[in-house]
């Protein structure tokens, strides 16, 4: 294999990995703070795609502003979901909180999927991309829409990681993810942290959907496969671990990219693409059941 082919695959893997990281990071933040697996994460991703599409197609807003609108809209939707549906899990009002969390997010997933089908129809929509054309770096050619979307994803991941690490709101969110009970005696509002976490998780999923929309079309079922990969990534990286989610996403992106060209028959290689992540997941869990960055008694 030539150096050019290796570079192409590495960059493709990085681009796809950055989208995976965005989705998985949202899932990890929600799991870390609220201790729930959000089964409606794929549908929040899909809503981000539609929010971006509507902002451009109906309101005539330029793509960059449409991205910001999609992120803001999904933050508000996420915060509303947390306040209305998720909060009772932690207020002692639910007899079986774990089962409730599974059922409510699963029901929300089905509801949003069918709502999108009813409102927008099952037809694909292709919104305007952030950037048209292609970028040439020596002999390497990268399509502009993918490069712009991946760059935006990387910038957003950097902002979220910075905010979690260096702002006091971020430290409070990390504190709640480490120990909810301790956070309360420190005077931290765990409800506010939960609201911020679910809003941020939804906004990240929405951003991923908005960035991917112009590349692979916006359809009601667009979130189904990416969210399965996000689940693989957060388990691979260690449940609730932020670095684990990012590194796991990069690994999955690279594995999918390189494994595809290692199989001689291209159509077969592509058909197997979604299985590679599962193979890596099984291999990692056999050696390290807590995931790459997880600890055996991980709380966050």
């Amino acid at each position: 294999m030539s150096l050019l082919a290796i570079s192409e695959q590495a960059i493709n893997g990085l681009i796809i990995g950055s989208f995976y990281a965005l989705t998985a990071l949202g899932l990890a933040v929600i799991f870390g703070v609220l201790r729930i697996v959000n089964f409606a994460h794929g549908e929040l991703y899909m809503l981000g795609g539609y929010a971006y599409y509507l902002a451009i197609a109906s309101l005539g807003i330029p793509p960059l502003a449409a991205i910001l609108i999609a992120v803001a809209a999904l933050f508000v939707i996420g915060a509303a979901i947390e306040g209305l549906l998720i909060r009772p899990i932690h207020t002692g009002k639910i007899d079986r909180p774990d089962e409730y969390a599974i059922m409510i997010t699963f029901a929300l997933s089905v509801f949003l999927l069918n709502l999108a089908n009813s409102v927008f129809g099952p037809w694909p929509q292709r919104p305007e991309p952030l950037m048209r054309g292609r970028v040439e770096i020596g002999e390497l050619i990268i399509s502009g829409d993918r490069l712009a979307a991946a760059s935006a994803a990387i910038v957003m991941i950097a902002i979220v990681v910075f905010a979690l690490r260096y702002t006091w709101a971020g430290k409070a969110v990390r504190a709640v993810s480490q120990d909810r009970q301790a956070a309360e005696i420190y005077g931290i509002s765990v409800q506010r942290a939960g609201l911020i976490a679910f809003g941020t998780g939804a906004a990240l999923a929405g951003l991923a959907g908005a960035l991917i929309g112009p590349v692979f079309n916006v359809v009601p079922i667009m979130g189904v496969v990416p969210v399965i990969k996000a689940y693989i990534i957060v388990v691979l990286g260690g449940l609730g671990s932020i670095p684990g989610a990012i590194i796991g996403a990069i690994i999955l992106g690279q594995v999918e990219s390189f494994a595809t060209i290692l199989i001689p028959d291209p159509s077969r290689a592509l058909a197997y693409k979604d299985a590679y992540g599962l193979i890596v997941l099984v291999a990692v869990l056999l050696l390290r059941p807590q995931g790459l960055f997880g600890t055996k008694d991980r709380r966050a």
């Binding site: 006091w168 430290k171 990390r174 480490q178 120990d179 005696i185």
Partner: peptide
């Protein structure tokens, strides 16, 4: 609490300021 409650993945100073600034 009976079991010490501090945030083990934050520094000593961060533990203090999370309380003070929240």
């Amino acid at each position: 609490f009976q079991v010490t409650k501090v945030f083990r993945r934050l520094t000593v100073m961060e533990n203090m300021l999370v309380s003070g600034l929240s």
